[in-house]
Every structure is written in structure tokens, then in C-alpha cells.
Nucleic acid binder design. Structure first.
Length: 561
DNA sequence: GCCGTTTTCGGCCCGACTGTTTTCAGTCG
């Protein structure tokens, strides 16, 4: 586990422990807020500490910064150890039961001397909960069920899913529900709209004048495993394969306020509501209120405008400086899908059999003018590239979508482009980057980066930045490209990146939209994205493409100082 | 414990849902 993740775990634990010993509620919340901040930090906490940046992290003040430094220096936090010594560890497990929070757990501990799950089971069996104020038959039933589910619960709370999995499920469910229910708007909200790299649960927002009918339809969609909760404005269900979806339905006039609220993040909203209150306003999911008068709520733009703020793109709403930037009118323009002209990372599983037609159609639908198929280096790769071009011309005689063929070379072979290919796709690896010069204007990107938090990853990213080699940003987790935090640093260092779908089938080409959202999450402007320009422009002349200059005076494999 | 476009002290977002209650506490997001 990375140091960031370990600190998140510790601060969440400290929050729980403080709740259990009965500390006033704002202190535990402060530790949780700090944990949330670290979770979305996107940079190695050691690096932040080394450059003296801990104080800049929202929710980290003097005391918590000192505890972070203590952890980085010694691997321990004495305060945390002292708290743990005061509280039986089994109580933290009890608090994981759905519907059981700190207050309830504390009552088990103080009133029943129960310190762990087995003790609670026993207390229930002996009837010791019966007659306790607040514990009716239904509550005891829920506790019994919750105790059973305490072990490894697949699909349970806390499990996170890769954003691409959640996004494709959400799109499918949304499209099913649009057909099945009387909804006016139906959109994805929550952390999925913010394009977090991993998703806990999916939030959908609908507007309708007949919420009952919407919930009825939602309850009967394909793929539903269980309806967990249903009220007048929201319903929570568990979908296959174990992803929870929350659907909220509001009246059309509240669409903007509700979308703003349900998109989050929590800390962004708290900042916004605090700002509102300072100005004599109140924000909730139904609108912006001045006294009893609703002054905004139809659109998100209206909500921000009511606070004298420009619109803040969903992907950067993390309370990581976006509100300050908005107050000072310096939120940069972020890259948008229509600006992207090509996708340079397609896998064509079986070029001998598969037809180009569906790829061309998918490219049209997304407004892409070029598609780049990446072939792994092999003896037959050049022949395969030639065959691809011929069949592409036959399928698209008017050349509405251009075909580019890239060659993927394994780590360490260096960016020398053989005849018959348009660009190189260089795979990174556990070792060091190649000590050679990239071939001029030829697009080139690096996938398969070493895992986050490991030093070789930083070396590859630094190398690419220095050499102006484009780095790949894709939602496909198997491609091991940049994440949005990397992207933000790459752009800050004036590096360049490429958004790609890494699609294996035409139906996956739309993942480039998700790649764009991830880039936006990293505050990436259009100018920093290599494939917002057309690669077929004369700047990449055939000569430049075929004859990269090799760097002299250094043998392959030599390290750069 | 954090934080400041009234503040270095005195506040700390806001509402839905549930179970157990005759008006609310706890939990959750």
C-alpha cells in the first residue's frame, strides 16, 4: 500500500476512534476531511512533504501536518497508537455493519460490554437487546443480517471499480431507463461524472413529474440484483456485477441545483454552501434560496452564477483549488471531445478477418478524422500494415476517416521508425527510458508505465517531458498509462499527452470520451493534448517520419545522467 | 482539528431515509 493510502486508512481510523471515545463531532470530521483530501491528492505525499507543501492540502493544518511528517519519518503515529490502546479493535469492525455508526457502537460497548462481532451475536441470542430504547424487532433483524455479511462481502460497501467499468454500466442503465420511464433529463452524476479513476457507486439523476413511475421502471431493469432502499425521491439498487446505483428524481425546475449537488465532491459542495451562507444565501439540491425565494436552480451555470462564480467543470470539483481559481476568474479552458481529431491507440485483434466498416462508423459518430491501429512488432507486421491500408481504402474509398498504422516496440528498442509505419508506440517497462532522441514530429506515446508510486514511473514521465514525447492517457486500466494526477503534473511541466481509447472493438472507441474526461480532471488544456491536432498535416513529412536522427556518441542502453 | 471577502475565536452543509417514535436520533451521502 502506498504511503498516501496508508495515511488515508489511518486518518479514517482516527476519525472512527475519536467518535467511539465520544469526542465532540467536529474533531473526527476534521480527520475524515483530511483523509478525503489525501485520497484525491494525486501526488506522492512524501514528495509533497519534501517540498514543504503539506500546509497547502485542504483540511490539513498544523496538527495533522505534524502527524503526516511523523509517519513519513518513523512509519508510526504515536497519537494513533494511543487511541487504539483505548478502544477494543473489534468495535471498528462492528461499525462496518450497515446502519451502525459510532453512537450505536458506543452503546454496545458501554451498555452491553460488547467489544466485537461475536459478542454482539451472543447478546442478540441472549435477548439482551430486547427492550433497549431504540432497538425494535426490525433493528435487531438488520443487525443480525449485518453480522452475517461482515466477512468478505462481494459487492458490498467499500469496494471500488475501475471507472471504465462503472461508466459503461451507467451508460447502459441510463439508456434502458430513458426508454422505460417518463424522464425528461437523465444524467450521470457523482464521482463518475467527475471521472474519478475508481468508482464506489454510481449516481444517476433524473427529472420527471412522475417519480413513482420512474422508480417502478428502475426497479425492474435488466441486471438488478436487489432493491436496497426506496423513498419518494431516491432509490438504491444493486446491479450485476455488484455495483450499487443510486437514482434521484427531482422536478425539472431543480435540475441544475440537483445536478450540482449530486455531482459533488462533498468538500466542493461544503465550500460552496459555506460561501453561499456568507452571502446570505442557502443552497440545497432544489435550488439557491434567498430567504423563501428561489433565485436559481434550473441549470448548474445559474447556481454558480448566483454565487458570482463562473461555471466550474465537473471533473475538477474536488476542493483542490478550483473554487479559489473561480473566484479569481482563472479557471483554464479544458480540453473537450470535439477538439480531439484522432485516436492513436486501437488494437485490431484480427486484422485478417475483421472489417474496417464498424471502426469507420464509430469514428464518424465521435467526430474523429483519423484512427491509429497499433500493431505489435513482429516479422509479419509490415505486411499486415500494407494489408490493412488496402482494405481500409476499399471500405472507405472517399477517405473520410484516415488510417494510421503504428508500430508498438517493446521496452528499450528505441524510437527508430521502420518503413511502412506512421508512428511508434513505445511501451515503457520496469527499466529506464531509452537514451535516444525521439524522431522529430512523429507522434509517439508511452503506455505500460510502471505502477504509481514507484520510482521508474517518475523517470519515464520525466524523460517523456524532457524529450517532448507524448504520454498516453487512457481509461483502459490494462494499458497502464497516466492517471489524471500524473496528467496534471505533466502539463505543469509543459509536457504533452495523448488521449486514447485503447479500444479492442469498435464499440469501445467511445472510451476516448472518458479519456478526455480524465484529462479534464487533470486540468489539461487543449493545447497540451497531442491528438487535438490532425496528424495528417504536412508538418509530419514522410522524410521526417522515416529517418529519425539517432543520437550520437552514446551506446544503446547507456544511462542519461 | 481546521479555518477566515465580517472572524486568530467561534463557528463548522444540508437533506433523505429508517426505525422507533408521537417529534426524533442516527446514519448516510
Amino acid at each position: 500500500m502506498s504511503k498516501n493510502a496508508e495515511l488515508v486508512r489511518i486518518f479514517v481510523s482516527i476519525g472512527d476512534l475519536l467518535d467511539l471515545i465520544g469526542e465532540e463531532r467536529f474533531k473526527p470530521e476534521a480527520y475524515r476531511r483530511a483523509a478525503r483530501s489525501l485520497e484525491s491528492l494525486g501526488e506522492d505525499i512524501q514528495k509533497v512533504s519534501d517540498r514543504g507543501g503539506l500546509d497547502d492540502i485542504p483540511g490539513v493544518g498544523e496538527a495533522i501536518a505534524e502527524k503526516i511528517r511523523e509517519y513519513l519519518g518513523t512509519g508510526k503515529i504515536a497519537y494513533y497508537d494511543r487511541l487504539r490502546a483505548q478502544v477494543p479493535p473489534g468495535l471498528l469492525t462492528l461499525m462496518q455493519i450497515p446502519g451502525v455508526g459510532p453512537k450505536t457502537t458506543r452503546r454496545f460497548w458501554i451498555e452491553l460490554q460488547v467489544e466485537e462481532p461475536r459478542g454482539l451475536s451472543q447478546a442478540i441470542a441472549e435477548g439482551r437487546l430486547t427492550g433497549m430504547p431504540g432497538f425494535g424487532p426490525r433493528k435487531i433483524e438488520i443487525l443480525t443480517e449485518g453480522l452475517k455479511g461482515l466477512g468478505a462481502a462481494p459487492g458490498g460497501a467499500g469496494e471500488r471499480h475501475p471507472v471504465v467499468v462503472a461508466w459503461e454500466l451507467a451508460e447502459r442503465v441510463a439508456s434502458d431507463l430513458r426508454r422505460a420511464a417518463p424522464v425528461k433529463e437523465l444524467v450521470i452524476a457523482g464521482s463518475l461524472r467527475r471521472a474519478r479513476e475508481t468508482i464506489g457507486d454510481i449516481d444517476l439523476l433524473a427529472t420527471s413529474s412522475e417519480p413513482e413511475k420512474v422508480f417502478d421502471a428502475f426497479s425492474h431493469l435488466d441486471g438488478i440484483r436487489e432493491v436496497r432502499l426506496r423513498g419518494e425521491t431516491k432509490e438504491t439498487v444493486l446491479f450485476d456485477p455488484g455495483i450499487q446505483i443510486d437514482l434521484r428524481v427531482v422536478a425539472p425546475e431543480s435540475y441544475g441545483a440537483a445536478l450540482q449537488y449530486f455531482t459533488g465532491s462533498k468538500d466542493h459542495n461544503i465550500r460552496l454552501r459555506t460561501l453561499a451562507r456568507d452571502r446570505g444565501l442557502k443552497i440545497n439540491e432544489y435550488g439557491v434560496m434567498r430567504g423563501d425565494t428561489r433565485i436559481a436552480g434550473l441549470t448548474e451555470e445559474e447556481v454558480y452564477a448566483a454565487l458570482d462564480l463562473p461555471f466550474i467543470p465537473a471533473e475538477i470539483r474536488e476542493n483542490r483549488g478550483e473554487i479559489e481559481a473561480a473566484l479569481e476568474r482563472r479557471v483554464p479552458p479544458l480540453v473537450e471531445l470535439p477538439q480531439v481529431t484522432c485516436d492513436l491507440h486501437l488494437h485490431w485483434e484480427d486484422p485478417a478477418k475483421e472489417l474496417p466498416g464498424p471502426w469507420i462508423d464509430a469514428a464518424h459518430a465521435l467526430g474523429l478524422r483519423h484512427l491509429g491501429v497499433v500493431l505489435p512488432e513482429s516479422d509479419g507486421a509490415r505486411e499486415m500494415a500494407r494489408g490493412l491500408r488496402t482494405r481500409w481504402r476499399e471500405a472507405d474509398p472517399r477517405s473520410t476517416v484516415g488510417l494510421l498504422v503504428g508500430l508498438e516496440r517493446p521496452e528499450g528498442t528505441g524510437p527508430v521508425l521502420p518503413e511502412g509505419f506512421d508512428y511508434l508506440a513505445l511501451a515503457a517497462g520496469p527499466g529506464d527510458p531509452p537514451p535516444i532522441e525521439p524522431p522529430g514530429p512523429v507522434p509517439l506515446f508511452v503506455g505500460h508505465l510502471p505502477p504509481p508510486g514507484q520510482e521508474p514511473r517518475h523517470r519515464w514521465i520525466a524523460w517523456a517531458q524532457r524529450e517532448k514525447v507524448g504520454l498516453e492517457l487512457t481509461p483502459d486500466p490494462t494499458a497502464e498509462g497516466l492517471d489524471s494526477g500524473d496528467a496534471q503534473r505533466v502539463v505543469a511541466g509543459e509536457g504533452r499527452l495523448f488521449v486514447t481509447s485503447a479500444a479492442r472493438r469498435p464499440a469501445e472507441l467511445h472510451r476516448i470520451e472518458l479519456a478526455v474526461r480524465l484529462a479534464r480532471r487533470g486540468w489539461v488544456p487543449p493545447g497540451a493534448v497531442g491528438n487535438t491536432r490532425d496528424p495528417g498535416t504536412p508538418s509530419a513529412s514522410p522524410a521526417a517520419r522515416r529517418r529519425p536522427r539517432a543520437r550520437r556518441g552514446r551506446a544503446p542502453g547507456t544511462r542519461r545522467s
